[in-house]
């Protein structure tokens, strides 16, 4: 395996895994406030799936000779990144709809092609992830629908969530192809299958009719059907904000990393304790034989 290919894969799979783990936090933020028992169960199952996705992806990265702990430490001290979308806050219950519908919806568009990526363990992990992601997007849309057709207060929450998350969701596809640093080489290696702009357009085209179905206002005055292209025109996100978030200045960067660091640090005695017990048990068994 060429060194550059391996290095790029570790970066990509690692970042992807980190995104799943950090991605538990914005939605986890609402588990204890879910409004019904069923919503609580659905949301918890969903956020649990994200932990599972992180786990599958770390394992895929481990086949490249890097351990999960090594990757984790790089996340915790900021040497590795995760998707910037998770540096935005979740402020009302409709965000649980919007995150599933828009963020997971965008993620699916990125991930479906990766099931055919050139690196087998990554592709196989993505098959499992994609199967579970469609549950996520659907439950999100279901929440959104309930909110958009609910009381005036609920409709307000739905619109607020859509307005806040629309441009961050568009940014999930990465900067325009012309400016994306890793795109060209990754496409040649078949660990990236479509261009950023291609996927972004696809997302806009599939989402705008859904917004109309929900009866919500479009979050961008620039959205217009373009007959000639057979696609929707839309306003370019403010990329300076994107780079701000990447630089660590998003609304939640500091809190997200602090939460992950705390979980890791507080859990050290547990991980060490259970391992020590397993070793003692093995030694006792060995002595008895």
């Amino acid at each position: 395996m060429p060194a550059g290919y391996r290095k790029t894969l570790i970066r990509q799979i690692g970042q992807h895994a980190h995104s799943e783990i950090v991605g538990q936090l914005p939605e986890g933020n609402w588990i204890t406030r879910a409004p019904t028992l069923e919503r609580k169960a659905i949301l918890l199952a969903k956020v649990q799936d994200e932990a599972g996705h992180g786990l599958y992806l770390y394992c895929a990265a481990e086949t490249l000779g890097v351990s999960r702990d090594e990757l984790t430490e790089k996340l915790l001290d900021g040497r590795m990144k995760y998707s910037s979308i998770f540096n935005y806050p979740t402020l009302n219950w409709a965000d649980m709809g919007a995150v599933g519908w828009l963020v997971d919806g965008a993620a699916i568009l990125n991930q479906v092609p990766l099931q055919r990526t050139s690196f087998g363990p990554y592709a196989r992990a993505m098959v499992r992830v994609c199967k579970e992601e469609s549950f996520h997007a659907r439950q999100g849309f279901d929440v959104m629908r309930k909110m958009a057709t609910g009381t005036p207060a609920q409709q307000k929450m739905a619109q607020d969530a859509l307005n806040r998350l629309w441009f961050p969701a568009l940014m999930m596809f990465g900067p325009s192809d012309a400016e994306s640093t890793h795109s060209e080489q990754s496409m040649a290696w078949k660990i990236k299958m479509n261009s950023n702009d291609e996927l972004r357009q696809k997302f806009v085209d599939q989402t705008v009719p859904q917004i109309e179905f929900l009866g919500l206002e479009l979050p961008d005055a620039g959205i217009k059907w373009n007959e000639a292209r057979g696609s929707y025109d839309y306003s370019d996100p403010d990329w300076s904000k994107f780079f701000d978030v990447i630089q660590g200045n998003g609304p939640c960067n500091v809190d997200r990393l602090a939460a992950r660091n705390k979980a890791w640090k507080d859990g050290a005695w547990v991980r060490d304790g259970l391992l020590a017990h397993a070793r003692k048990k093995a030694a006792r068994k060995h002595a008895a034989e």
Binding site: T32, A41, L44, A45, V47, Q48, A51, A263, G267, R271
Partner: peptide, 28 residues
């Protein structure tokens, strides 16, 4: 359920969520 996303290791995070999910179902 308060543990979700904060457990000492991913495997425990997932296991705790399963326990919480069972308990929520039993509550229903």
């Amino acid at each position: 359920s308060e543990w979700c996303g904060h457990a000492p290791v991913l495997e425990e995070d997932i296991a705790l969520a399963n326990t919480a999910l069972d308990l929520i179902g039993q509550t229903q």
